[in-house]
Design a protein around this nucleic acid. Structure first.
Lengths: 142, 142
DNA sequence: CCTTGACCTTCCCATCATGGGAAGCCCTAT
DNA sequence: ATAGGGCTTCCCATGATGGGAAGGTCAAGG
């Protein structure tokens, strides 16, 4: 199998396959006499593993570890679990931050007329001097 | 005010101030005779605006638009609101995706022993051939 | 006056994961 | 044999940010 077919079969672009190889995430592929990379079923398996892990949002660094654990028949599932829990925690952290921003923005948008008048609490908040987001009840125009 | 002071006062690093200027997000600062950038209160105001918008997760492209609206006394608040709503929608989209991943991972982690045994549903899922992520109610141990 | 140290300037490089594209070689089908 | 598509490597770009080098500037103190 050439890289193009492997790409189609795994869902990882040829470009990325070469990149993963270049940074050592996956082992260098066998080469044909003319220098073409050649892939087998096992390589496809690895590529699909990486693909899924990326889709889950694991960083390449973590995927390297995951791959190592995957290949290691002697692994402790505890290690895998720890890695997953760490990733979950990060996701939750990011979700919470984005949630907070979305909430703030929703509140601001709710009080914005959204018509042809220029005044807008969203801009007011963005240009406010203080730290708090749309909290003070000062009704003097900024 | 030199760039260092402006950075401290606005919370935007000197590096980023120069970058924002270089890409046209903010107007080029005045220069002293010796070529130093010089900032006034108004520039600080702009920098703080950008800072807050970035913290909200607005892309620089959108911030450019926001800055334009901010400066434009004739703006329609509708435009600002539209931009904000668009951003909220994107945030919600991303949050939903991350939430889905976190949920999947939580379920997988819940069924992972997390001890010294090697078998682990997390790795099993990552290396699974099919598309669905731990969904089928097959109680055959995978 | 001169030195020192802190600041400023520009320019280049790195990140993370990905894509675009050029120049040139290889393979297969007509 | 030639055309086309696929392959190779190499360079560049993204978005937002930081690091650092080489060199100019400024203010304070001996």
């Amino acid at each position: 199998m050439n890289i193009g077919e492997a790409a189609k079969a795994s869902g990882v672009s040829a470009k990325m396959i070469r990149y993963y190889e270049s940074v050592g995430l996956i082992d260098p592929a066998m080469r044909s006499e003319s220098g073409y990379r050649v892939y087998g079923e096992n390589d496809l398996h690895v590529l699909r593993f990486v693909k899924r892990a990326r889709k889950m949002g694991f960083s390449m660094e973590r995927i390297e570890t995951l791959l190592g654990l995957w290949r290691d028949g002697e692994r402790n599932s505890a290690e895998v679990k720890k890695l997953a829990l760490g990733h979950i925690a990060e996701l939750e952290q990011q979700i919470a931050e984005m949630q907070a921003v979305a909430d703030t923005l929703r509140k601001l948008a709710a009080t914005c007329h959204g018509d042809n008048r220029p005044d807008c609490p969203i801009l007011d908040d963005l240009s406010a001097e203080h730290e708090a987001p749309a909290r003070a009840p000062k009704r003097r125009r900024a």
